[in-house]
């Protein structure tokens, strides 16, 4: 571990607590402006006013807003996310059920897109304007512009419909993982490829790359030992952001493939005005981004010795 890094991490983590509380307050306030009464929605069209009033008491909606907010925040600080109004189960349990699914698919997707994206991006940069580079640039453009749900549907049509080799939806076996992971990987893959290419193109024009060549190193050795590490900093940043986006729940992909992930949980909660679940998943998403950004910032210190956090 680098000098001063432990202290830096501690400061960042402590600093994240007020940030997450602010996020919690914002999401709480915004939900107050959402149309529809959760109690009415819960009971359905033909509920009597008495039933609704009873339900509001049960849900704590009869209390003044500041009391509701303080209860929610106090719960958060204790680690208690409350109970889902829809299922009646603890929110922590709901998230514990769905987050690992999303995390699994996201992790596979980000690994695929990072490994392939960096390799293809480097190749494309080293052979700038070659046939390979031109093909890569067209495919990348398509990858960035393609709507995810459409890609998912096409993959289902081809691999489940015509070829019949992969399941079109559901969850449970490794086969179920393939299509969603590929779908999710496409956009980050295109982004990472494009960024690696441009970053690499910039680095291989640097004087120190010429110095390395003048030492008698082969082009391959120059790329691996001198260029890659320098080109990697912006790429790591984007990998981090993309991983965060995936973890926050790929609503469309999870819906297309009927995967029981956190994205679908959240969307279902929004439709049902299941405030405890919405609030928890928003705060959780914020926490994930904070953590990933921290990891990215830590990785900088290993990539570039000029970046230090010990002062």
């Amino acid at each position: 571990m680098k000098k001063g890094l432990g202290k830096y991490v501690l400061i960042r983590l402590v600093g994240a607590v007020p940030l997450l509380l602010v996020v919690a307050v914002i999401v709480f306030v915004l939900l107050q402006y959402a149309p529809g009464d959760p109690a009415e929605l819960m009971l359905g069209m033909d509920a009597t006013p008495e039933n609704v009033a009873q339900m509001r008491v049960k849900m704590g909606l009869d209390k003044p807003l500041h009391v509701q907010l303080l209860r929610f925040l106090a719960g958060l600080l204790r680690g208690d996310l409350g109970t889902s109004w829809q299922s009646g189960r603890p929110v922590a349990e709901e998230i514990g059920r769905t987050l690992p699914v999303t995390a699994y698919v996201s992790f596979v997707a980000i690994v695929i897109s990072s490994v392939v994206g960096v390799l293809v991006g480097v190749l494309s940069a080293v052979r700038q304007y070659s046939l390979v580079d031109n093909i890569v640039r067209v495919v990348v453009l398509a990858g960035v512009s393609m709507p995810v749900f459409w890609l998912g549907l096409m993959l289902i049509v081809v691999f489940s419909g015509f070829l019949g080799v992969l399941p079109s939806s559901g969850w449970g076996t490794p086969k179920h993982l393939v299509l969603p992971a590929v779908t999710l990987a496409t956009y980050p893959l295109a982004m990472i490829t494009r960024l690696t290419r441009s970053s690499m193109l910039e680095v291989i024009r640097q004087d120190y790359v010429r110095t390395a060549r003048a030492k008698g190193l082969s082009m391959r050795a120059v790329i691996v030992h001198h260029a890659l590490q320098n080109a990697f900093i912006p790429v790591v940043t984007v990998i981090g952001i993309q991983f965060g986006v995936l973890l926050a729940g790929a609503v469309l992909t999870e819906s297309v493939f009927a995967i029981p992930g956190i994205g679908r949980l959240t969307v279902a909660a929004v439709f049902a005005r299941d405030y405890p679940v919405i609030r928890a998943s928003v705060v959780l998403t914020a926490a994930i981004f904070v953590l990933i950004n921290l990891l990215v910032d830590i990785s900088y210190t290993y990539l570039d010795p000029r970046i230090r956090y010990d002062n």
């Binding site: 004087d207 120190y208 010429r210 001198h226 320098n230 990539l303 570039d304 010795p305 000029r306």
Partner: peptide, 18 residues
């Protein structure tokens, strides 16, 4: 680097920063 070596004009940018 062995039989023929070269020193470049701009030392600020000629060494690998990492």
């Amino acid at each position: 680097g062995n039989q023929v070596s070269m020193i470049f004009q701009n030392p600020m940018a000629s060494l690998n920063p990492v």
